[in-house]
């Protein structure tokens, strides 16, 4: 099986790829925070955010079509939740429909909030895609560890990352075995089969965990993981952080100015 479904394109090289993962994590968080804090209807500010994230995506040399496709996968869920807003917000009525017994009316105010939520969600997703497709997961973990994520969690996460590939392979083989034996029957039968597959997977994973631990003990594991690569905060990081901070402050000022 090809395992490029996780952090794809993160092994490429560009200005953005070379930044310290801490810089990227913190600026992504700041960016999303700024986006979420922006009040509805500030379209020039949203345009500024979009230009910013688009420029960074172009700089990162990640295929744009891939980013677009990836970002649209999450949107249906957002639409599903936000779709009720236009009908429930009070305000000037933009249109009204009679459906069977109900009278539904859409307000301008509601529509604006709806588009606003869609824009916020999309911009946030774009920035997350930028983060993960320019940073290897191991680097990201290292950055999170330096930013005080508890050691146990980074270790669990790195083991998880290491074994996802093994277990996903296992799942693929089980799926193939299931399908070649004509996976059919009623709903209940199907659920039973999936239950058995997950149960088998659990027992195999548990036994693998025991073996891995024994192997690590045999090699002198003392609860610490040591790696050769270390992170360094360099001038480009400072420059990147400062300029992004400046743009976000500009956006905030623009927000106030529009009030």
């Amino acid at each position: 099986m090809k395992h490029s479904f996780l952090d794809q394109y993160s092994d490429r090289d560009s200005l953005i790829h070379r930044l310290d993962p801490r810089t990227k994590l913190l600026t992504s968080l700041l960016f999303i925070l700024a986006v979420v804090l922006t009040p509805p209807g500030r379209w020039p500010v949203f345009a500024l955010y979009f230009i910013l994230v688009a420029a960074l995506l172009i700089l990162s040399r990640v295929p744009l079509l891939y980013v677009l496709k990836r970002s649209l996968v999450i949107m249906p869920f957002v639409v599903l939740i936000a779709v009720f807003i236009p009908f429930f917000k009070e305000g000037e009525i933009a249109g009204s429909y009679n459906i069977w017994l109900w009278q539904l009316s859409v307000t301008y105010n509601g529509l604006q909030v709806f588009w606003n939520i869609l824009a916020k969600a999309w911009l946030s997703i774009l920035s997350l895609i930028l983060l993960t497709s320019t940073t290897r997961f191991s680097q990201l973990l290292k950055g999170m560890e330096k930013l005080r994520l508890p050691g146990v969690m980074t270790m669990i996460l790195s083991f998880m990352y290491r074994y996802i590939f093994v277990l996903v392979d296992e799942v693929m083989r089980m799926k193939q075995a299931r399908d070649s034996r004509n996976f059919g029957g009623g709903r209940l039968r199907q659920l039973g089969t999936i239950g058995n597959m997950i149960g088998t997977l659990f027992i195999r994973s548990y036994e693998r965990g025991e073996r891995v631990y024994a192997a690590m003990m045999a090699r002198g594991f003392d609860g610490q993981t040591r790696t050769l690569e270390s992170l360094s905060f360099r001038p480009p990081d400072a420059l990147f952080g400062l300029s992004l901070g400046f743009i976000l402050i500009l956006a905030m000022v623009l927000n106030l100015w529009y009030l």
Binding site: M155, F159, Y161, I164, L167, E170, Y206, G209
Partner: peptide, 16 residues
């Protein structure tokens, strides 16, 4: 730190 590998693999299990 004893069962960290196990918990990591079980997290991967939930994920899979």
């Amino acid at each position: 730190e004893k069962q960290v590998p196990l918990m990591g693999i079980l997290a991967a299990f939930i994920f899979a």
